[in-house]
Design a protein around this nucleic acid. Sequence first.
DNA 1: TAGTGAAAAGTTACGGGTAACTCAAGTCAC
DNA 2: GTGACTTGAGTTACCCGTAACTTTTCACTA
Lengths: 339, 339
Amino acid sequence: MKNNKISLAEVAKAAGVSKMTASRVLRDEGGFSEQTRVKVIAEVERLGYLPNRLATVFAGDKRSTFVGVSIPELGNEIFAQVLEGIDRKLGAFGHQTVLGMTEHVRDQEEKWIETVLSWQPAGLIITGRSHSQRSIQMLRGAGIPLVEIWDFNSNPLDMCVGLNHFDSGYAMGQFLAGRGYRKFGYAGTSHDTANAASARLAGFAKAISDASGQLEKQILLRDVPGFYTGYYCTEQLLASHSDVEVIFYQNDNMAVGGYEYCARAGLSVPGDIGIAGWGDLPISSIQPYRLTSVAVPHLRIGQLSAEMVLARIHGTRVQPTRDVGFRLIPGTTVWPATS
Amino acid sequence: MKNNKISLAEVAKAAGVSKMTASRVLRDEGGFSEQTRVKVIAEVERLGYLPNRLATVFAGDKRSTFVGVSIPELGNEIFAQVLEGIDRKLGAFGHQTVLGMTEHVRDQEEKWIETVLSWQPAGLIITGRSHSQRSIQMLRGAGIPLVEIWDFNSNPLDMCVGLNHFDSGYAMGQFLAGRGYRKFGYAGTSHDTANAASARLAGFAKAISDASGQLEKQILLRDVPGFYTGYYCTEQLLASHSDVEVIFYQNDNMAVGGYEYCARAGLSVPGDIGIAGWGDLPISSIQPYRLTSVAVPHLRIGQLSAEMVLARIHGTRVQPTRDVGFRLIPGTTVWPATS
DNA sequence: TAGTGAAAAGTTACGGGTAACTCAAGTCAC
DNA sequence: GTGACTTGAGTTACCCGTAACTTTTCACTA
């Protein structure tokens, strides 16, 4: 697959100068006359020359302008927005995002890390804090800026920005217990790896047990955490445990699906059943109800992570760990506060 | 920024063989003894050698395994899912997605094309059919597989997969006129370039004029086409044109926002006002109502585009243009058919 | 007018792999 | 024992820019 692209040497020859001079003109490095500049630029235009950045990186024994970004999935709006924030910021500084979707599978992450490192990226942004042994080795050896995002970790491989998911689950459990709930349900999806959602569930369970409540049922479907899954999880959960008073969902999409199931089944919310989501998606606040949820500064996570990588690349000092926190949204889909 | 990475030469030296032999072992090319293989592999493991793919591409004067994918934005769920479909398919075949967000701006697309081409990608997938003159030149000169997606175009630069947005807008206009509507509104967002949404609006307007209806008001906010924008567009539109009978929205998110405005303003849907969206997002079918919309096989667009690029890379023949069509969803948010 | 220094340009080497070629040693048939 | 062939390996050149160094050109001064 020989490509017939124009090289700098050809441009230089056409302009009647040496490769080096042409190179200097293109990088505007100085050390050439106006006359020469004009000649070279003219040939560049005429021949449609596009530089080969591979060679540039290679020549300088430098790193590329790539930044590898791993995201578990894009079906979840939150991750899509984190990615958008990252790419926007990186793009503004002349960097390119090389995407990796790990689908919450650790082997896939490892394989992706290996591949992306072989392209000599300038930095890496990885979702999640749990990696395979080999991944950790490769990441350590790479010697490039690395940000682990989403799940806050005070002792990251390099840098970290995210929030404490366990705490956010705990906060929700505590909040619901405070509203008088005693019999709890949880609806989510299951994955190979311990992920942030599992941490939320663990925190939620802890809060319930601390409040002497009962986590009656956790349902974990092996499916994508979307509207339909929420709908069916709710149907299944209530079929087997009709005494559950409130359900905490892995995310808002599932919660909205759950709400809709209740509405169609003739159950009043929050009268008959309470609904709580996580993530505070835009959709949750444009419904006839205000979904009880946990708001997360996801845009900020994307932006910050990109900024941290960029700072490292440019040698600026940055705070290596950032806990962006969360905010509980009381909403109207659970019992009101007893005043 | 000298990197202290292990090179193949170092591995070879440690194993007591030549670079070439080590290279052969790693590529499993044959022409080496079992003994040699074991030695080389042992040193690769010991030193944690990771190949430099930049060098490979460079050496062979080949193309990389990158595929550049441009998407206008990720805030829109549909584009996120198109991207997910593409990356999944590409990843399965050992290719990496290099993301580019053009934000519907043509200059940004041009700049991205220039950059991504300089990395010698194996192929390109670009959203939209309208490009700058220089972009077209670069794309033509690149000589790599290229798929223009989203807006179907029977005469693409190379390949194309999408649907006819004009027709889909026309279909909606015709459908609504058939349901008895005469006074129409349109709510969308404005961008620099003629994009698919503009084509839909044009088709919609044509259908209305063909049916002797009246497009009372087009409102185009300079904002992201999401829930809130739909909410406020509706408020503004109805404030100035209260005689509008039905509103066609740029997408479902905006339509759901519009529905919510009507609900809060005490307007009955479809009694007082009809609502029609576009895209048929999951959210639209999990509401208490069924949104009138246009279903689009967006997952299929993503998958097909990746398949087309892969086929070209591997030298397989493929149909260069694919119209994936659309399907009108009558829904319950407009007047029922008069029987 | 030779000498000086700066500006403008050229030359060489290099980076990390791989294609293409060469070479050495062993195997086998006759 | 010799030539033909196979196998396992090494050598060389190259991809395309750029760093580092060298050479040429030229204006200006003593």
